[in-house]
């Protein structure tokens, strides 16, 4: 057995997580909506996202056991999609749309403002684990640019003052 296996298998045992009964019920319902289990992967990842507050190695391991898929496969699918909350991201994930229509209406100022205010660069999380700043691609709200999606909610037509107020409301 290589060193590789020893290290990671031990880690896996330590961090093992399980779905709650409620989540399992939800997953069972999801299965009924698709002709095969594989197809339920994206919705199940959403369940795991809520259940474990972001998806990490332990969550993928748990899903693999639940769905009977290879963890490698889930890992490949999970990393393809950018919108799932990753384990270790802050309580509030600030996703600033940086695509052309928003860029034309000043999203860069929003990003810079947030960088200054939070002291982090896009892709980073504040030390207190409260905010994660992300630059994302088009959020389909170009008429109300600039837009920031904070967790599930869109905040549109933002001015820097609005943004400050918004951040304060989270504190």
């Amino acid at each position: 057995m290589s060193a590789f296996q020893e290290i990671t298998q031990a880690a896996r045992e330590d961090e093992r997580v399980e779905f709650s009964a409620e989540a399992k019920k939800k997953i069972e319902w999801i299965y009924t909506r698709y002709p095969n289990r594989e197809a339920a992967l994206l919705p199940v990842l959403r369940v795991a996202e809520k259940e474990f507050d972001g998806i990490g190695a332990a969550a993928i391991d748990c899903i693999a056991r639940e769905m009977g898929l290879s963890p490698g496969y889930i890992y490949g699918v999970f990393t393809f999609y950018t919108h799932y909350k990753r384990a270790g991201e802050g309580k509030y994930v600030l996703q600033v749309c940086a695509t052309l229509p928003c860029a034309l209406r000043g999203c860069r100022d929003v990003v810079h403002h947030l960088e200054d205010k939070l002291g982090i660069k896009p892709g980073e999380t504040t030390e207190d684990g409260k905010f994660t700043l992300k630059k994302v691609e088009c959020l389909a709200s170009c008429d109300t640019a600039p837009v920031v999606q904070i967790n599930d909610d869109y905040h549109e037509n933002l001015t820097l003052e609005d943004l400050d107020k918004l951040l304060e409301s989270f504190e």
Partner: peptide, 22 residues
């Protein structure tokens, strides 16, 4: 056995295994 997967996308794509499942 499905251990190998392409992870990430675009030009970051690379073949890899899931940690712990070599």
């Amino acid at each position: 056995t499905g251990e190998l997967a392409i992870i990430h996308r675009g030009d970051s794509s690379v073949v890899d295994v899931f940690p712990g499942y070599p």
